[in-house]
Nucleic acid binder design. Structure first.
Lengths: 232, 232
DNA sequence: CGAAAGCTGTTCAAAATTGACCACTTTCTA
DNA sequence: TAGAAAGTGGTCAATTTTGAACAGCTTTCG
């Protein structure tokens, strides 16, 4: 991913915020974090945006009743906390690293001025937000129509990188059923139930590692006859 | 860069896309629609963005199983179909007018070039997408942790404009239980059930018109005796 | 006017989901 | 290193939600 040197000409050129911000004097700070560190917490003053240079970060919200929900999982090259740019005074969610991470904090004022003065950055930023938007909308639609079973199959496939460029990574880093439940908005017992079902049907495997087979796709694609195995 | 004339100075200045696009020669078209007209359909080629000059538009998605879900309801001053800007080749949703509307269609290429050349427009556009993002995220969170009853109360309050600047409009335009069900992802029988409950409790009224009282807020705000401090 | 189409209120069995509980494993610590 | 604490996975009864009726009202329109 090391940006070349002479590009930046073509309109399709990747614009690297790190390189760019590195040329700016103030209002930014790069730092490294270990897994499970909190980048910002729900309720904090929202006066900056973070850029994920490397790693995975989860964004969660805690309800008044104390339930937790995973709103998004962001990776390399994505922004977090953009809400502050439309005047949200406080963080509405908590951002926590899931892996080793390298993040860059940029002051709200700083990013605003760059958005103003740098069309290339502005363009990249718009692309990023629109993508994010599309993803959240997809999650919402998923939530509105699909059963818990399909939602679970979907996040598992997404975690395994199905649909992305590179060959899918069939083995997923350790992830608890608890967290899966938070991601799809259900209870852990429901997750346990379907994980078993998937395993019995040979769609996934897990003992030590979690392996996702492409056959899991059938859960999402297939409609009707659930064949034989009736659960419950 | 033929900016207006003297405005555009203050950073908070309202930027009016209609006025702006009016100065541009090609790639735009304004039209008026009556209620229930389709602006674009799921599956159409996505090569333009629409700006709602006036009226309300609903954005819906139809699943493979034929179920319909309302993803968003957009109003005056908002954009629809921005997905095309990140390369979505086809419309993922259907946009339908709910009231008399006036909309402006702008070619993808056109809007892209303006985004490039006009920082003021670009800024306004970013603000719009970020707001949209925040709203969809709020919907997702709502869906992830609230019960059907609370979700229904929430959309009713939103429809009544609670939370917006002006005094809320307690009377809501006719809206069927069917559509409410699609908005919160449940069945009509459930909506009917809760609407009755709300009515019996005096939170809403409806015979001819639907009136929302502020007391409905209690459905969302009240928890049980929350003396129970949940600790983690 | 009268038929047809749309809504809404209700009911009910079937299906999905929750919440609490038990068992087992890993991690921490006295 | 034993024991406690925390994290995980599986099970089940109780509860909630769905989906598919059906009947009573309005609205629409020929």
């Amino acid at each position: 991913m090391t940006k070349g040197t002479k590009p930046a000409r073509t309109s399709r050129t990747r614009f690297d915020p790190v390189v760019f911000f590195a040329t700016v004097a103030k209002g930014r700070a790069i730092s490294k974090q270990r897994p499970k560190q909190v980048i910002f917490s729900q309720g904090d003053i929202a006066d900056s945006v973070f850029y994920v240079k490397k790693g995975k970060v989860k964004v969660t919200v805690i309800s008044k009743q104390g339930k937790e929900a995973v709103v998004a999982i962001l990776g390399t090259g994505e922004f977090i906390g953009e809400g502050c740019l439309i005047g949200q005074p406080k963080r509405l969610a908590t951002a926590t690293t899931m892996t080793e991470c390298e993040t860059m904090r940029v002051d709200k004022a700083q990013i605003q001025s760059v958005l103003q003065s740098e069309p290339a950055f502005s363009k990249m930023f718009i692309t990023h937000i629109l993508s994010r938007n599309a993803r959240v909308e997809a999650d919402l639609v998923d939530q509105l129509f699909n059963s818990t079973e399909k939602r679970l199959a979907r996040v598992l496939l997404l975690l395994a990188n199905f649909g992305k460029e590179g060959r899918p990574e069939p083995v997923i880093a350790k992830i608890s059923q608890e967290m899966l439940a938070e991601m799809i908005g259900t209870t852990r017992s429901r997750v346990s139930h379907f994980m078993n079902k998937f395993r019995q049907m040979g769609f996934i495997d897990y003992k030590r590692n979690l392996e996702i087979h492409s056959s899991l796709l059938s859960v999402i694609l297939n409609e009707q006859p659930d064949d034989v195995r009736k659960s419950k």
